[in-house]
Design a protein around this nucleic acid. Structure first.
Lengths: 202, 202
DNA sequence: GTCTATAGAACGATAGAC
DNA sequence: GTCTATCGTTCTATAGAC
């Protein structure tokens, strides 16, 4: 039987190790400052062997983007178990805050990757980064719609934008407190929204 | 007499042309994907001549950051002529929206530069980028304080964060409409704040 | 499938003529 | 002050032994 890598018996999931290492190192160092050797070293794989699994550096970037999309999908799957959409959104904020130290140092993984890739006009990786952010936006929009908000799409942009903005400022100013304080503000705002819905029932 | 470049008679402000070109090209392409040759070409200066004015590439990045700080200082000086702090903030939002097409393609110049430089841990340019954002945050905080808000610093983080977030999403999704819609939301929010102040007079 | 060695290209920076 | 030519390094990617 062949497995997902197409091989019969691998060392120990080198492709998976390379993908995970790419996601982490590219987030910390950025795409352009990261060499194939950096990723190979983090994955404990000999440099030349990388090209057996990924033909180009861009394929490794794509793999990192897919990894981040996977993380997001698993997080959303967990949140879906919460019955109330308002509580689901508050749990999302809590998840963001729990990652505050890494976000305050290197920013949101998907957001900072998107910033860097958007400055290209070749390769189409910029579009791929946008798709991961779309995933988050669409799910958030669904929650707001379920909460009965008339402009759910705009609210989602405001909500996710607030997260991207606070991550950027927290990392630029090296202040995790920004994540905490803005997270609490978003939570209070979500509570206010709920009250609005009950009172105005629109 | 010597001028600011330390020379007696320059060609035609090559240092200034290089600084302006650095600010523009580094914003569009990012730091790591931009070569000295790219900046020299945009400034119409021979490649080797660049090193007479800037000893390293990092000095060009620093010059670009100073240029962005200068832009911000000039904008703030204009806004200061408006009597009411609420109108000053609304004029700032209007200035952001007027730049929506460039922001929707390449993001906020200072914000995206900060994202890229923050992933370094050498050179101290990350701190310099943070200082430019601090300039904007401090001025904004002053406006909120003048409006009588008790938590002016946090409000400034929320406000500037919203701008950074909407710029990031607009460029990642290639949608200038995000800048327009979020700008209008911020304007409405500023109007609401004013009403709060009058009603609650806190 | 795994790994070494290296080709080939790009870039930052410098030497030195003018 | 200005510019050309190029050095030295670093990186992506490949060739080919095992």
């Amino acid at each position: 039987m062949t497995d997902s890598t197409g091989s019969r018996a691998r060392g120990a999931g080198k492709r998976e190790r390379l993908t995970a290492a790419a996601a982490e190192v590219l987030h910390r160092q950025g795409v352009e400052r990261t060499t194939i050797a950096d990723i190979a070293k983090a994955a404990d794989v000999p440099v030349g062997n990388v090209y057996y699994y990924f033909k180009t550096k861009d394929e490794l970037v794509q793999a990192a983007l897919s990894e981040h999309a996977g993380h997001l999908a698993r997080l959303v799957a967990e949140l879906e178990q919460i019955p109330d959409p308002r509580e689901r959104l508050k749990a999302l904020v809590a998840a963001w805050i729990s990652q505050r130290d890494i976000a305050a140092r290197y920013g949101c993984p998907t957001g900072t990757l998107a910033v860097e890739l958007d400055k290209r006009d070749e390769g189409g990786l910029d579009v791929e980064a946008g798709k991961v952010l779309r995933l988050l936006l669409d799910w958030t929009e669904g929650q707001f719609r379920e909460l009965g908000l008339p402009d759910a799409a705009d609210q989602a942009v405001t909500f996710v934008g607030a997260y991207q903005g606070m991550s950027l400022l927290a990392s630029a100013l090296r202040d995790p407190g920004i994540m905490t304080r803005e997270g609490e503000r978003l939570t209070r705002w979500l509570d206010t929204l709920e009250e609005d819905r009950l009172e105005m029932s629109r």
